[in-house]
Nucleic acid binder design. Structure first.
Lengths: 186, 186
DNA sequence: TAGCGTAGAGAACGTCCGTTCTCACGCGCA
DNA sequence: TGCGCGTGAGAACGGACGTTCTCTACGCTA
């Protein structure tokens, strides 16, 4: 029952934080959304800061898990790289898509909350390393990894601002050119 | 004197909003930073929302003006495209760089303030059109424009999160490949 | 110099929010 | 059945913030 309450709390927090931003959502709204009592909320997490961190951490493992699962469907190493952008497109198309939770959170609290800044760097670092792994597996030069990261980040931001999934396809196209132009590293 | 007060107010607002985010900065802090009285502040702008909008609008013309001035230094049309990323690099290196003000503002208030969302779309749209103009002037295919936009946006975000100017050079490298791989449109 | 309008300083107001406290209800156990 | 521990609902508290109001002092004009 404790894990269940924690899940309900994080579900409510995630839905509200992601949709409207962190500072714009009050603890009382999260309490109402979770169906828990305020005492229970503060029993599970000592304060809003801790809840925000837990929200970002849980979303991180799920986000990267979903990405990895989608990429694994592709067989060819080069295709796997492009599958990242296909998955981004399907993410952008989900109802309620509002850009990247970490980019948004960092823009809002990056300079005011060290925890948010740390979570964001950790998430983006992990994503960058994942891309670097795909690049290495394809035998492509390491310099390709950061370039793919920039395309992906740019696609997330642009899709979030203009509310269109189009940037995913544009990024995929650009990524294909970069992959094709890269010489094999070994 | 009225224009001078307005300038001082917007200077203070911009420094604080950009450095720490919009919701994290109070009107009283802006008043103190501007050296104006609270009555004067509210005489110049009816409320915080209007001040935020004025901040974003003024920064928009200056940001794009600085970019255009730097790009004009390059003579060759292809070089002009790459000059965009060189200028991004010099911007990233400025002390106090904290990413893109519109991406940050949109992440914080994009769903809660229609004005912020509108300013952000307008600014990014203008930037996208500027890039499209450079691409057209170089006789490159129109599809290149949005790809360059993604690289630039990704570079801004990544530089802001990791506090390093490196993404500008990586984006420039990728842009050079994309430009080189693009066939002439005419 | 007397009077008036303006502007600055900051107190005050109402609201909101994170967090804590109170109180009463209900369940388990002897 | 009587008792007490834990839990839920929500009131309460302290502080912050956007905005307005009050009061005072200064400068201009007749």
């Amino acid at each position: 029952m404790d894990d269940d309450a924690r899940t309900r709390l994080l579900d409510a927090a995630e839905a509200l934080f992601y949709a409207r931003g962190i500072q714009a959502v009050g603890m009382d709204e999260i309490r109402a959304g979770s169906g828990l009592s305020l005492k229970r909320v503060y029993g599970l997490y000592p304060g809003k800061d801790a809840l925000v961190e837990a929200y970002l951490d849980r979303r991180d493992v799920r986000w990267r898990g979903r990405l990895a699962a989608a990429v694994e469907q592709a067989g060819d190493p080069d295709e796997r790289i492009l599958a990242v952008f296909d998955w981004l497109g399907s993410w952008f198309r989900e109802p309620g898509f509002r850009g990247c939770a970490w980019i948004n959170g960092h823009g809002e609290l990056g300079t005011v909350s060290e925890a948010v800044a740390r979570c964001t760097r950790a998430h983006k670092q992990a994503f960058a390393e994942y891309l670097a792994g795909l690049v290495a597996a394809a035998g492509r030069p390491a310099a390709l990894g950061p370039q793919l990261l920039l395309l992906a980040e740019g696609a997330m931001v642009t899709a979030g601002i203009f509310r269109t999934p189009e940037p995913a396809a544009q990024a995929r196209e650009a990524a294909a050119v970069l992959v094709g132009a890269s010489t094999f590293a070994r």
